[in-house]
Computed example of a mutant assay.
Amino acid sequence: MTIADIRKTLEQKSARSIESFKAELQKIRTGRAHPGILDQVQVEYYGSMVPISQVANVSLLDARTISVQPWEKGLGPKIEKAIRESDLGLNPAAQGDLLRVPMPPLTEERRKDLTKVVRAAGEDARVAVRNLRRDANDQAKKLLKDKLIGEDDEKRSLEEVQRLTDGTIAEIDRLVKAKEADILAV
């Protein structure tokens, strides 16, 4: 392993951490409708549990309403039941084959609770990035110990790892602030 390999690995893992964090933020619902909110809801389909997006067309009717159009006739009631039983607090309404899922407005107390959830998820993401930094630094120190690189190279590597880590954490902080502003917007 070389310093370039360490940097490349850190960049890839940091990018995956950011993507994972973005996916986590999408699950936290705001007052606005977003089709991704239903991504974690599973429905029984021929004996196996699958995401709703694999058995229905999920789209937006307007800013506060999601429409779910099942691809098969008998799936409507199953999808409706799955959405109702999810921990999202949504109450779908059937209109023939189409399911309308209105997003209830958030109370001020619920908004504050959601910002706490966002901050906690942000801190978890920052901890994951710091763990990546620690692993990269350990690899650089191991290369120095094995006399594969010099002290100057190791110092440069540690500085570059810190710079990459700071950039990733700044991106996480930016995403947290944006999500908090989205949640607190009435």
Rank of each mutant, 00 (worst) to 15 (best):
A94D: 02
R16P: 02
E44R: 07
G167M: 12
D5W: 01
E180V: 10
K147R: 15
K13W: 01
M103H: 03
T107E: 11
V117S: 04
G47A: 08
A121R: 10
L164A: 12
T168I: 06
A82Q: 06
L90H: 11
L10P: 01
G122E: 02
D39V: 00
R126C: 04
I37L: 15
G96H: 03
E24M: 06
R32I: 01
T2E: 10
D152C: 10
R163H: 13
D173A: 11
L158Q: 15
L25Q: 01
D97L: 15
V118Y: 02
M49I: 03
R32N: 09
D166H: 12
A140N: 04
Q139H: 09
P105Q: 10
D87G: 14
L10Y: 04
L106C: 06
T115K: 09
K112F: 06
I66L: 12
T107Q: 12
A178H: 09
S67D: 02
P70A: 12
D87T: 13
E151H: 09
K8M: 07
A56H: 03
A128P: 00
K141S: 08
K145T: 15
G89H: 09
A15E: 15
Q69P: 00
S67C: 08
I18A: 11
D135R: 12
Q95E: 15
L132M: 13
I169D: 10
R163E: 13
K81W: 03
L75V: 03
L38Y: 01
Q12M: 08
P105T: 01
E85I: 01
G122L: 05
N57Q: 14
V50Y: 01
A23T: 00
R156W: 13
D146H: 02
G76Y: 05
R126Q: 11
V68M: 04
E180L: 12
L144S: 08
N91D: 08
K179W: 10
D138C: 03
R119H: 14
